[in-house]
Design a protein around this nucleic acid. Sequence first.
DNA 1: CTCCCGATAT
DNA 2: ATATCAGGAG
Length: 217
Amino acid sequence: MDSSTLADQKRRARRIVRALKKAYPDATCALRHETPLQLLVATILSAQCTDERVNQVTEKLFQKYSTAEDLARIPLTRLEKLIQSTGFFRNKAKNIKACCQTLVERYDGQVPRKLAELVELPGVGRKTANVVLGTAYGIASGIVVDTHVARICRRLGLTDQTDAVKIERDLMELIPKSEWIDFSHRLIHHGRQVCKARRPLCDQCVLEPECPRIGVG
DNA sequence: CTCCCGATAT
DNA sequence: ATATCAGGAG
């Protein structure tokens, strides 16, 4: 980090949390879903893909295949075609099917509520597990660190790390656990609308007072 | 570290 | 043309 103390960083992090809460009071998960299983599938599909496209794909997919049992039985090539437009479709199809097969075999088709169990599922890492636990179950297992959260937290100087797990560890020290779930949703919303990767709209940014803006990237 | 990969904005 | 999009596995 820099010469500022941990206490300084915590105070700054709380100002950022407060500004985000004021600016985006209703920010929530943008992946449309009706069940924890659907959110899990949508989150697997969201890797390197916009949430808008994931929602288009899942709307059709869940019309016919909405449960773990459905997706565990679906022919692989059929699933591949249904999710093709999200990219990485062979990996995602294989993972979704294997994941749902495991859920049927070990968890009665339900999504488990423990991080350690979730990350053992094919295609599920910490980011996906945190999304599902936080949004579907209200369990603050950690902080969702996706591409937006990573980028913005580096820009803000809340972390120097590039590895998602190390960024998450830094953020968990700085932010009270009661804020973890909403913080991620709000930061991701902010990343899509304002603090964008390519052309950040710094003139309309509510975090501008807290941002060093050194080499914006 | 590389690979997986289509769609869109710039 | 190229960077980027709610990453994870080998």
